[in-house]
Design a protein around this nucleic acid. Structure first.
Length: 368
DNA sequence: GCCATTTGACCATA
DNA sequence: TATGGTCAAATGGC
């Protein structure tokens, strides 16, 4: 399934269309069922009916809602998987001239030259004004620099870092640090792969930081967060090639970047608007670009911002993740993290809010 | 001696 | 073929 999953492109597209067709059918039937039931009053009580009918209506509504969610997820997956790059795990297969250990390592870690199989997101760090030119963003993790390269069209070279514990603990996390051309005080830091090393575990075990200095890394130890992460992985979002979005102005006049409209373009999906943006203060703070909703997004201060461009590509786990996601509705899976109204309205012929339940609950994933 | 950084080369991808 | 990402030898600091 994984590589054959390589069929990821065309064959899966047909399957997805079939799936969408089935789901649409189910949705229609649920809708009809709902239509057959007497309407409810403002308080949800069925007019002139007993508890049984009320229960039926509730179930029918739930059914309709479930179908809508499933359709939305399927559409998002379909869109995200359209280009279906090969799985990173395939990277090692075609390699020649490298020793077996390297090939094995790459396969094992899902690493290929462009590491497409790993979750990828970009954050922005604003360094303190008094920082020297050698300053590099410190997210609290220990990184080892393994390369630097001049990037076409960029004034400053890009530094390549990997987790210090890559060898010792097999942590596949890497990051790329590049100073912004537009603002010397700003670094674009692209993370790829979550930390699986002990420092991530220590962080996970540590008491939560104050909301304005969120330091939890993308190493998602929490199963729910991992689920979210994995699901994100299947929803590719790229900002490359897009015109710069309008800046977001903070109250104090400073400017933060907004990458809200990542090119989910083809995917019709743009997560960053709410999913990834987080503003934090000053260099050294880590912006996990986690999955807070707009409501939960904190703006701890000017000058530091992060956005999430989960560029992960579909992964073999996606199906499993989606399955878990769709099945874990009661478990609090918040689809809105991934599927935003803007993104799906164009695809879905139904109102969106009901679809994701209670809007007020959005973004409260981390509240518990 | 160990570890991190630098840097040129290699290789995969687009 | 150009470009980006990674490797690994060389180098330097502790």
């Amino acid at each position: 399934m994984e590589d054959g999953g390589g069929g990821g492109g065309g064959g899966d597209g047909n399957s997805m269309h079939l799936l969408l067709s089935i789901l649409a059918d189910g949705e229609e039937q649920a809708r009809r069922l709902l239509g057959e039931l007497p309407p409810a009053d403002d308080e949800g009580q069925l007019l002139g009916q007993g508890p049984a009918a009320e229960c039926c209506r509730g179930v029918a509504e739930q059914l309709l809602c479930t179908f809508r969610k499933a359709i939305a997820v399927a559409k998002a997956i379909e869109a995200a998987g359209g280009d279906s790059p090969r799985s990173a795990n395939e990277g090692g297969a075609g390699m020649a001239g490298r020793d077996a250990a390297q090939a094995q390592e790459r396969q094992g870690q899902g690493v290929c030259k462009r590491r497409k199989g790993l979750p990828r997101w970009t954050e922005k760090f604003r360094i303190p004004d008094d920082a020297n030119l050698e300053y590099t963003p410190d997210d609290g993790f220990s990184w080892r620099k393994y390369g630097q390269k001049d990037i076409l069209g960029a004034k400053f070279p890009r530094g390549y870092y990997r987790c210090t514990y890559r060898n010792a603990q097999g942590c596949a996390a890497t990051r790329q640090v590049q100073r912004s051309d537009a603002d010397l005080a700003v670094f674009d830091v692209t993370y790829q792969g979550a930390h699986t090393c002990l420092q991530a575990q220590r962080r996970a075990a540590a008491p939560p930081p104050p909301p304005d200095v969120q330091r939890s890394p993308p190493a998602l130890q929490d199963p729910d967060m991992q689920l979210l992460e994995n699901f994100r992985n299947g929803l590719k979002v790229e900002t490359d090639g897009l015109p710069p979005p309008p800046p977001c102005f903070h109250g104090d006049g400073t400017t933060a970047f907004s990458f809200a409209y990542a090119a989910a373009g083809a995917a019709g999906y743009s997560p960053a608007e709410s999913g990834g943006q987080r503003l934090l203060q000053g260099g050294g703070c880590f912006a996990p670009a986690t999955f807070s909703s707009p409501a939960a997004t904190t703006s701890a201060g000017p000058g530091y911002f992060a956005h999430c461009t989960r560029g992960a590509h579909e992964s073999p786990e996606l199906a499993e993740v989606v399955s878990a996601a769709t099945a874990s509705d009661r478990a609090g899976f918040d689809y809105s993290m991934y599927l935003h109204q803007h993104d799906l309205d164009a695809h879905l012929p139904f109102p969106f809010d009901p679809m994701f339940g209670h809007p007020s609950s959005h973004g409260q994933h981390g509240d518990a």
